[in-house]
Amino acid sequence: MIFGRARAKAAPMTELTTLERLAATIESRKGGNPNESYVAKLFDRGPDYAARKMGEEAIETVVAALAGSDEELVGEAADVIFHLAVLLSARDLSIHDVMAELDRREGVSGIVEKASRTSE
């Protein structure tokens, strides 16, 4: 179990492999035909559009968390991760960059880590 309660079919390292496959698929669709690929359409419209789609999915995830079923929340969370991966790629970043940042933060108090990012 990585986060929350374990699901019967989830293996601890499956998520990383899934994220790597997702990132590879997204990269392979860069420059593709926007009429044939949703990912290519997101790239074609640029990082600003990808950011707006990410925001929409984040809001839908919050709504599902507050008023939806577990299945709805899981589906919306998947949409957030997908659109985040597209947005990162549109900015020439990857999920690996995010994982490296999470690794850097591991073992550091959230309060201490957040304080290190504020310039106050």
Score class of each variant (00 low, 15 high):
residue 1 M to I: 04
residue 2 I to T: 12
residue 2 I to E: 13
residue 3 F to K: 10
residue 3 F to A: 09
residue 6 A to Y: 01
residue 6 A to C: 05
residue 7 R to K: 15
residue 10 A to I: 00
residue 10 A to Y: 06
residue 10 A to K: 00
residue 12 P to N: 06
residue 13 M to I: 05
residue 14 T to A: 15
residue 16 L to G: 07
residue 16 L to N: 05
residue 17 T to D: 06
residue 17 T to M: 05
residue 18 T to P: 02
residue 18 T to E: 11
residue 22 L to F: 03
residue 23 A to G: 04
residue 24 A to F: 00
residue 25 T to W: 12
residue 26 I to E: 00
residue 27 E to A: 11
residue 27 E to L: 05
residue 28 S to E: 13
residue 30 K to Y: 06
residue 30 K to Q: 10
residue 30 K to V: 02
residue 31 G to K: 07
residue 32 G to I: 07
residue 32 G to S: 10
residue 34 P to V: 14
residue 35 N to A: 13
residue 36 E to T: 04
residue 38 Y to W: 13
residue 38 Y to V: 12
residue 39 V to S: 02
residue 39 V to D: 03
residue 41 K to W: 14
residue 42 L to M: 15
residue 43 F to A: 00
residue 43 F to H: 02
residue 47 P to E: 10
residue 47 P to Q: 07
residue 49 Y to A: 14
residue 49 Y to F: 15
residue 49 Y to W: 15
residue 50 A to R: 02
residue 53 K to T: 12
residue 53 K to A: 13
residue 54 M to S: 08
residue 54 M to F: 15
residue 56 E to A: 10
residue 59 I to N: 07
residue 59 I to P: 00
residue 60 E to F: 07
residue 63 V to P: 01
residue 63 V to H: 10
residue 65 A to K: 02
residue 67 A to L: 13
residue 67 A to N: 12
residue 68 G to S: 08
residue 71 E to M: 07
residue 75 G to A: 07
residue 77 A to S: 14
residue 79 D to A: 11
residue 85 A to T: 05
residue 86 V to A: 03
residue 87 L to C: 08
residue 90 A to K: 00
residue 91 R to Q: 12
residue 93 L to T: 00
residue 93 L to V: 01
residue 94 S to C: 01
residue 96 H to K: 14
residue 96 H to S: 13
residue 96 H to Y: 11
residue 98 V to D: 03
residue 98 V to S: 02
residue 100 A to M: 12
residue 100 A to F: 08
residue 100 A to W: 06
residue 102 L to G: 06
residue 102 L to V: 02
residue 104 R to L: 13
residue 106 E to L: 12
residue 106 E to V: 03
residue 107 G to L: 11
residue 111 I to W: 10
residue 114 K to H: 15
residue 114 K to A: 15
residue 119 S to Q: 05
residue 119 S to D: 06
residue 119 S to W: 05
